[in-house]
Design a binder for these strands. Structure first.
Lengths: 298, 298
DNA sequence: ACTACTTATACGAAATACGTATTAAAGCCC
DNA sequence: GGGCTTTAATACGTATTTCGTATAAGTAGT
């Protein structure tokens, strides 16, 4: 089988129409060049160059092969360039997930836009998933990175998940506008200790569930859970309907639902982290590049 | 720069997902396979395969490169196949010319058709040329092969022209229907020794011109030339107009011009050869194959 | 006819690839 | 859990390939 070297040699000779000049351009001596061309012709079973001791010209098959050789070399160079991009995380694909609550975070669209400008060749595949679903998908290899609301100290189920915190967001209390405390600006959670709460199931959003329990525990009460909703915006509907109060990230304020008021919480632990979850052993350049871009300040 | 071998090795490992099995399929031992893959990864600057001492898997860049490598190998194989065709004269291009008189030969279309069925990948470029024009074009490299009416003994101008005779055709005498001898079936040229003749200029069709002179000389007369025509069918128009008689190949009988009658010539030298002209030093497989097909009996 | 130039051949040296032997590490089996 | 098997990586000597120097052979121009 012929060789990339032989192709390069042949193209050079075909361009120069001289073995001597081609050898100079290739920084080799003339005899090995003759040998390689002979070997190539031998291998193909066709005479590519007509040499009559004085000048060199392309045979008809040689013209055909020159075209082919150039195409092959170009394709190889293209593949090399693609790999150079892949090595630095500028090409490839990235399967990205996010929880519903993240879609209300104002920074998400602009961060994704920034990344796209940075690495436009990366094929982004977005999907919406619950936090626990993301962890499972990461570990099974169906997902590369996910936006979650979790803490590095207790990452959901598995220990093979890496979390990079990219934002710390206050929690707010969502309550019906006809609630006695609705006129207030801020509140301590203990002031609504006797009220009912609506939450997401712990299996789907453990962190927010546990955070409510934790703040309540510090205030020496155990929250009464009356209703559940699968999605976080479903909670707000339940709040508007007067089914209870809800603890949600501050970015949910952007959801202007009739009958819902948001109060700042004074409790020091009333915050939530926005983090990027990925497999701890995933060294993919695309992922590393993505994490870099997302965690860098500007 | 990486190598075709390394690409083949990589593709095999990627297919088997095992260095050991891949090495067996490639009929080499496992260590050099590991070395070549390492060298390839080193060259590209990317880890293509993830090996964790128990199983091998493709990295994301590896998946991209597998696709690229397959494309490159396919392209190389394609080029090799094209050259195999070119070597046996089944692909390439062939610039072919013919004189006007040849277009009336009944065998020409069917021979070209046969060749096209035989080597459909060859790009045929046809053009009409005078015999001498063909010789000049052959020598200057503008033409590959031409249909001419000439004799191997005196091929026009140059000695670097090869002639392959493919047909020997009788000459006939074209004369006006109102001519006294028009009722005859055959004739000796000496019977019209005193008549005027119309011919093509000697610079354009030397053979036919010289042949007339030769037959006349054997009959001890020198033909009187009254008119000239550039093309052979132009001669027939002149004959119909009563401007003189003409000597033409028998295949011109297919031209049923009003006022023209064709008589068989009894003279033993009244024949003409149809031949293929090509450069004697042209070893192009396409040409050789064409000459073979044209000169073979069937 | 001689010189200058170009490609092909001969042969020894350097670089490269391969194979055998061995190591290291991980999963499997008892 | 310890030994066994399997798998990829490393070490090193050998074989192959490729390269360079020297030389030959042939052509065009002076």
């Amino acid at each position: 089988m012929f060789d990339f070297r032989q192709l390069r040699y042949f193209v050079t000779v075909a361009e120069e129409l001289s073995f001597t000049r081609a050898a100079q351009r290739l920084y080799i001596s003339q005899p090995p060049l003759s040998q390689q061309i002979q070997s190539l012709e031998n291998d193909l079973g066709v005479r590519l160059l007509e040499r009559n001791k004085r000048n060199v010209s392309l045979t008809e098959p040689g013209k055909l092969f020159l075209d082919q050789a150039r195409q092959i070399l170009d394709k190889a160079e293209e593949a090399r360039a693609l790999m150079a991009d892949a090595a630095t995380g500028f090409s490839g694909k990235l399967r990205l997930a996010y929880t519903v609550s993240v879609t209300f975070h104002p920074a998400l669209p602009q961060m994704l836009l920034r990344y796209r400008r940075f690495a436009p060749q990366v094929n982004l595949m977005l999907s919406e998933m619950y936090t626990e679903q993301q962890y499972a998908a990461l570990l099974s290899g169906d997902l590369d990175v996910g936006f979650v609301r979790d803490e590095p100290e207790h990452p959901g189920t598995a220990r093979n998940i890496r979390l990079d915190v990219i934002d710390r967001e206050p929690l707010v209390l969502a309550l019906p506008t006809n609630h006695p405390l609705a006129a207030r600006e801020s509140i301590w959670l203990r002031e609504v200790a006797m009220e009912a709460f609506v939450v997401q199931p712990r299996e789907l959003a453990a962190t927010l569930y546990d955070r409510l329990a934790q703040i309540a525990a510090k205030a020496n009460f155990h929250p009464l859970i009356r209703q559940h909703a699968q999605q976080i915006n479903g909670l707000l509907v339940l709040v508007a309907a007067g089914m209870g109060l809800a603890l949600v990230p501050a970015s949910m304020r952007s959801v202007n639902l009739n009958g819902v008021k948001y109060l700042r919480l004074e409790d020091p632990d009333a915050y939530m982290l926005l983090a990027l979850a990925s497999r701890a052993d995933d060294t993919s350049p695309v992922l590393q590049r993505f994490l870099n871009v997302m965690t860098e300040p500007e």
